[in-house]
Design a protein around this nucleic acid. Structure first.
Lengths: 208, 208
DNA sequence: AATAAAGTAGCACGCACATGCTATAAACTT
DNA sequence: AAGTTTATAGCATGTGCGTGCTACTTTATT
């Protein structure tokens, strides 16, 4: 048998290199050569773990979706546990903040998200992941609003489906703007807009 | 002198070919070869009008920005003329609709917009246009809200700057979602969300 | 010590790309 | 008719790409 190497760990190291290249130069620059260089491996070594370029891209996007989902679901679990009414709104907002590029790690992830998601438009092999992520976001945002509504924290007569679409579009728009116009729209501005939006839905406004 | 050809028209024909390629296969597929084929020209002919690939891309993006701006500014002019209060809200919404992919022509344009704007993140030569378009949108959206506010059509106590950012992000988010998730989010849904959002800002709601 | 397995490295091929440069065709001016 | 200018076309070069394939190293088993 060969050198003692954990293949899982190697694959993750390669995928991290993919993320760095995509973050820096875009998905079109994510060639095997550039990725191998970034990972400080020979191109042949990368190909030992991923038989084709397409397979690597799909795997990387899956990993990205996985990481986002894991973070969001952790918040979702916390939200499901009973809590004083006062904290529930804050927890809901904390969950929604996960969709925004609030810190540099999340910002990098948002860039990678946008790159992969828009690449999926013309790359059929990436579309399942793009759909999965978007549907998941809609579902979780819908649940957050439904929970808030059950708790009587939202204005009466709101159309929850419509509000879900509005909030999802707002989150995507804030992320896209922060990623593509960083010189005039900061992550903090995105957080502020989210807070204002939630206040506008809430019966009491939100304590800040 | 040569064959009787209007160079302006030729350049526009080439740019239209760029748009079709970008719409169909993304900006990364917009090579001189693909563009020449799409325009039914020889690659050398295209190069007669554009000395480099980069110059062509910049020109094409400028043209896209130009077209969007022209459409929006036409509405802005109409909005500046006096009109009954009743019509002013409708006119404002009609202007804002120009930012959404409401019909197939605008949808195609939105795809091209997203492709170029996100390509600009890693292509310095495209960034000036990306900034210009985004700043222009912010300005015009800000003016629309300010005008509505002066007319007393908005709720009191609104932070207009914050509302401008929220509306801009919403418009971008709706467009991005319609472009990237067309199977689950239709242009009509985007129009509905916009209408609902404006209603939520308006003191009377909006008629119908 | 011999062998098998897994990791690492990289050559070679065919293709697509942007671009420098040259050659031909066409049409207006003189 | 001759010459000038512009349009069209395409060849040649160097670079980067994914991938098929082969060789070499390293380690664990026998």
């Amino acid at each position: 048998m060969p050198k003692i190497v954990d293949p899982e760990e190697r694959r993750r190291a390669v995928v991290d290199a993919v993320f760095r290249v995509v973050r820096r130069d875009g998905v079109e620059a994510a060639s095997l050569r550039n990725i191998a260089t970034e990972a400080e491996l020979a191109i042949g070594s990368v190909r030992h773990y991923f038989t084709s370029h397409e397979e690597l891209m799909v795997f990387a996007m899956k990993e990205m979706v996985e990481r986002v989902s894991a973070r969001v679901l952790a918040h979702a679990e916390a939200l499901r546990r009973p809590a004083p009414v006062r904290d529930r709104a804050e927890r809901a907002e904390a969950l929604l903040r996960e969709f925004l590029p609030a810190d540099s790690e999340r910002f990098d992830e948002a860039v990678v998200w946008l790159e992969f998601t828009s690449a999926a438009r013309t790359r059929p092999s990436l579309q399942p992941q793009a759909k999965r992520l978007y549907e998941g976001m809609r579902m979780i945002v819908g649940k957050v609003l439904a929970e808030a509504n059950r708790g009587g924290r939202l204005h009466e007569g709101l159309d929850l489906d419509a509000e879900t679409e509005r909030l999802c579009a707002l989150l995507d728009g804030l992320t896209v703007t922060a990623v593509l116009q960083p010189w005039s729209f900061t992550p903090q501005a995105a957080l502020d807009v989210l807070h204002a939006h939630l206040s506008s839905l809430s019966v009491d406004g939100l304590e800040d």
